[in-house]
Design a protein around this nucleic acid. Structure first.
Length: 659
DNA sequence: AAAAGGCTATTTTTT
DNA sequence: ATAGCCTTTT
């Protein structure tokens, strides 16, 4: 096992009381957390069940778990909790949600369903339903800030509307016995705040709490952390304020200094030795980030030598940019006989990926792109999951609405409207309401509804009795979904969708087979809701180039990074105006730079097409913040000393106003 | 129930 | 420019 440097050692062996580890980019923060867990178990004889490590992503949790497993070398780790914040919340709710007035078979609904709910509520309140998204995100913001419905206040119209809808939205959720993703944090907060018995139980369970990427925590998560700590204060918070790039989602990097105020005996350790990047990259990154105000000062250093200068490419336009970058990669890979996965192209916003995709396809370079449709947004997956959700929790209205007519069961919209109104009136779920004799619908509709609901009940019984996954295997066919797919689109499409469903079933099986994995359908489903992509380990092994937004690149590293579109209006983004927003853009730039191990290339265009118009972007201000001696302009394309013949020619043509 | 037309947005999205 | 989404139309 690699030796720890002195500050790392200090962080690992500080056992009692609150600790903040300021971990610069590439300074080995994951190593500190994993080693500390191992230290607690092996040297301090702490039972693994009393240790809880929290991350933000499933991937980080998975990695940490496997690294701890390796380092423990057979030491028992039974009961050790290494999970995402949301998974921790889910575990708390799984045990205690009944104390909050929900029934045990609750479902977690996806953001799409939650938007639909908001839309319906707005319609009922005859508010403007085109604002549903804005309202939903304000509600989500309330929840992320740790604000309960009755506490929600706002200064602006939209916020007040959102505060109002928040209350009714929460009531609808609870009528469906459902929670949304934000509730996985907020409800546990409420539980621990209001219910002393539960609070003590959880505080006794979690005696050592370690939080990764602490700068990304939001107000609700901070509240949750504090409640879990009780009086013991055994917190290890690891984070880097310079990598806080999610403030627009409610992340509060201020949670770092807040620790210093809330815990007077807070111990602070700085990790400043960087093991990732060569000197010039680091010095440049330091200079850039030094332009931001700091509560804690850090200065990264490295023993890896100066390395290359930072290369800067000035390109004629976005197509040229893509071509130059791809050519540079092809050339370099050929020279080194390296792999595609050694290179990453990073950009501020998704649309910038387009020209790069084209260029990569032309060059036959395999790539993987961040973002895109998540597995769970595919309609066949949503359909199938609706059925499963209904089997667990028939009161799940969004699931009911989707499943009841997919495939069509000749239940018309007027029937569903009547059912909805009736259910609302009596405060029942749709499923409960459809049995009521007082429901006024045509006999034909009633029979259809009863038929469907009866099937749900039968199937629920059936899967309770047999092996779970095989029982589900036959479900798509049983409901005529296969037929439906074939009627819908062409054959190839139907086959692909069918395979996606099989893929989902395989995944459920894998989850079930994990150590302390979810067992019942309810557990598996709720666990699934916390993923957004289909996770397969073999995906990590593919030799593909990475195209990614700067946001999605956080936490990753690559031998070579191409940070493209280093232009004003793009990075910093044109919507960022306030000093705080510019600072966040700067952190984004900093995150991009520090992903690179030994070669960093920046690129920018002279001309770019935006909303159908040609614009001539200025070089990003962040470029000016890099010391000149570290910047190596390719050709003589330095913006100050123009210019390269081809670019000059391009520019001339452009001035003459021709293609 | 499907097609067509029109309108609007167009930053980032760990769960 | 363009795509995606919503409404209206047939």
């Amino acid at each position: 096992m690699a030796e720890l440097n002195p500050p790392q050692q200090e962080a690992v062996t500080h056992i009692h009381g609150p600790l903040l580890v300021l971990a610069g980019a590439g300074s080995g923060k994951t190593r500190v957390i994993t080693r500390k867990i191992v230290h607690l178990i092996r040297e301090q004889q702490v039972a693994p069940g009393h240790i809880c490590a929290v991350t933000f992503t499933n991937k980080a949790a998975r990695e940490m778990k496997s690294r701890v497993g390796e380092a423990l070398q057979g030491h028992n780790s039974r009961g050790l909790m290494v999970s995402t914040f949301h998974h921790l919340g889910l575990q708390i709710l799984r045990k205690d949600i009944e104390r909050l007035g929900y029934r045990g078979n609750f479902s977690v609904i996806d953001p799409g369903d939650s938007l639909g709910m908001v839309r319906n509520l707005l319609r009922e309140a005859n508010g403007p339903s085109d604002l549903a998204e804005a309202i939903q995100s304000r509600i989500s913001r309330f929840k992320n800030d740790g604000v309960f419905p009755e506490e929600a206040r706002a200064d602006d119209r939209l916020g007040q509307e959102a505060a109002h809808i928040y209350t009714t939205y929460q009531r609808s959720l609870s009528a469906c016995n459902a929670v949304d993703l934000d509730d996985l944090i907020l409800l546990p907060t409420r539980l621990l705040q209001d219910d002393a018995e539960a609070r003590y139980a959880w505080q006794d369970r979690i005696r050592y709490l370690l939080v990764d990427e602490y700068q990304d925590s939001n107000g609700a998560q901070y509240r949750l952390i504090k409640s879990l700590l009780g009086t013991r204060h055994n917190l290890t918070a690891v984070g880097d304020d310079d990598q806080s790039i999610y403030s627009w989602r409610g992340a509060a990097a201020g949670n770092l200094d807040r620790l210093a105020q809330d815990f007077p005996n807070l111990k602070v350790v700085k990790l400043e030795q960087n093991y990732r990047s060569t000197g010039r990259i680091l010095q440049a990154a330091n200079m850039v980030i030094a332009q931001n105000p700091h509560f804690f000062e850090k200065r990264l250093w490295s023993t890896l030598g100066d390395g290359h200068s930072i290369r800067a490419l000035r390109c004629a336009n976005e197509a040229d940019e893509a071509e130059q970058v791809v050519n540079a990669i092809l050339r370099d890979r050929f020279q080194r006989q390296g792999e595609y996965r050694d290179y990453a192209i990073l950009y501020r916003s998704n649309h910038q990926a387009r020209p790069f995709e084209t260029a990569l396809r032309n060059a036959r370079i395999p790539y993987q792109i961040s973002g895109g449709l998540s597995f769970f947004e595919r309609s066949e997956i949503k359909d199938f999951l609706s059925y499963l959700r209904l089997l667990v929790n028939p009161d799940d209205d969004p699931a009911f609405l989707r499943a009841v007519n997919t495939p069509r069961r000749s239940i018309g919209s007027s029937t569903l409207e009547r059912l909805g109104a009736f259910a609302k009136e009596r405060n029942l779920s749709l499923f409960a309401a459809l049995w009521d004799d007082a429901l006024d619908v045509p006999d034909k509709a009633r029979i259809a509804l009863h038929g469907f609901a009866g099937w749900v009940n039968l199937k629920t019984d059936e899967i309770g009795k047999t092996e779970l996954i095989p029982a589900l295997q036959s479900l798509p066919e049983e409901i005529g979904y296969l037929q439906y797919l074939q009627n819908e689109g062409d054959e190839k499409d139907a086959a692909r969708r069918w395979e996606n469903i099989q893929e989902l079933l395989n995944w459920m099986q894998r989850l079930q087979e994990q150590d302390d994995g979810p067992q019942t359908l309810a557990e598996i489903l709720n666990r699934l809701m916390l993923f957004n992509v289909l996770e397969r380990e073999e995906d990590d092994d593919r030799d593909v180039l990475r195209l990614s937004t700067l946001h999605a690149a956080k936490g990753l590293e690559f031998p070579q990074v191409f940070l493209v579109g280093a232009e004003e209006e793009l990075l910093p983004h044109r919507n960022s105006e306030t000093p705080e927003q510019i600072q966040e853009e700067r952190r984004l730039f900093y995150v991009g730079m520090t992903r690179a191990r030994f070669r960093l290339t920046l690129s920018l265009c002279r001309k770019r097409r935006r909303y159908g118009q040609d614009v001539h972007p200025e070089p990003s201000r962040f470029l000016q913040e890099i010391p000149k001696e570290h910047l190596d302009w390719q050709g003589d394309q330095n913006p100050e000393e123009e210019m390269d013949p081809t670019a000059a020619f391009a520019r001339l043509r452009e001035m003459l106003g021709k293609p």
